[in-house]
Amino acid sequence: MMQNTLMTLAMCMLVAAMAGCAPTPPAVMRVRFDPRQGKPVLHIEPQPDGSTGPGVEITIRAIGDDESKDKVILTRTCDGSPETIKLPKVKNARAVGITARPVLEDKVATPKEYRTLPPGVKIEKYTGDPDWDRPKDFDAFWKRAKADLANVPMNARVVEVPEKATATGRLFRVALDSTEGVTFICWLYVPKDTSRTYPAIQTMPGYGAAQNPNDLTAQGFVTLAVNPRGHGVSGEFWPLPNDHYAYHIDNPDRYYYRNAYLDCLRALEFLRTRPEVDKK
């Protein structure tokens, strides 16, 4: 009995030692795309733990009417150091596309794809691709949708999360009611300095992802991170279907993205009620 116990203990110690000696997979640098003010740039950043990984391969291309003829205008490999790449101006292109692929030693990493606005167009003045025609009932559809939202009381429940406060900001968990009786969650960061008002930034998640709190109070912004129905912590109230992109796609008034967009509109309405926000 004692012999078996000692053998088992020795095997456990050997497995633990082997696990401790296993090579650590290389960290992958984060790539953040910033399209604000119509002057898009890529920010190459280390991971939150400070590690940088082996680098990132960047390919920038001009996108024309025929994407099979995209013109590559810049390729480079960034090393492990954080840096910012200003995107070049390109004539006669509908947009500029960027592919960021982490450089890994033992496997092909999944690239991240980004796309800018057409060169020279500021984001606040962008009205969409001229080749995309609006349906004839577009305005009537959204007028009806916004009327549906207006019939639902906002019923904002704002609860501070003091353990997530930063040197310059306070965090609040915000629950809002929206169409079809659905509640969704936002994260609100506001500056601690209440002597003035601040511009606000609202962010939304990618497909099926969570939108985590985003503290920009040190830069002088109020931020509202929105989790539309089913996304992130909002899944507590409305579980997100696996195929939510097609949820009620045969019924425009119940289609998932119609109501998810209304969630985002409701969040904007909430922002306008906040005393910290500059309404201009």
Rank of each mutant, 00 (worst) to 15 (best):
A95I: 03
V103L: 14
D177Q: 13
A167N: 09
E160R: 15
D70R: 15
L216Y: 15
V96C: 11
L176N: 08
F172A: 03
R254P: 00
E180K: 06
T203H: 00
E163V: 10
A27K: 07
K107Y: 11
Y257E: 10
V174Y: 04
A62M: 10
S81N: 14
R30C: 02
T59L: 10
Q211V: 05
C21T: 02
D106W: 09
V56Q: 02
L240F: 05
K146C: 09
F237H: 15
N227E: 06
R94S: 03
I98S: 02
L176D: 06
I123R: 13
E163R: 10
A175S: 12
M7Y: 07
E67Q: 13
T8K: 01
A62D: 02
V190G: 05
K192M: 13
Q3A: 13
R144Q: 07
G220Y: 15
P40T: 01
K164I: 05
C264N: 04
Y257H: 15
A27H: 09
E83Y: 04
D137R: 04
G232Q: 00
R94K: 11
T99W: 05
R173E: 14
P82I: 01
K86F: 04
Y247E: 14
S51A: 04
L149I: 12
Q37K: 11
F221L: 13
A225R: 08
E105R: 14
V152R: 11
D177P: 00
T77N: 04
S68Q: 14
K86Y: 01
I73Y: 07
R36K: 09
F33W: 05
G206L: 06
G230D: 02
Y114M: 12
Q211F: 11
P88D: 02
E83K: 03
E113C: 00
V174M: 04
V96H: 05
D263F: 02
G206S: 09
A93E: 11
R173C: 06
G80F: 07
D34F: 00
A16M: 04
E83I: 01
A22I: 03
K192P: 08
I60A: 00
P191R: 01
Y189F: 14
G80P: 03
A225S: 15
L240T: 08
Y257D: 09
L117M: 08
E236K: 15
E57P: 00
R134C: 06
M204W: 08
K91F: 08
R61F: 14
D34E: 10
R76C: 11
V158M: 09
D263V: 02
A225F: 13
L87R: 06
T168M: 12
Q47T: 15
I123N: 14
D193V: 04
F237P: 01
I58K: 02
P199F: 11
R173A: 12
V103M: 12
A140Y: 01
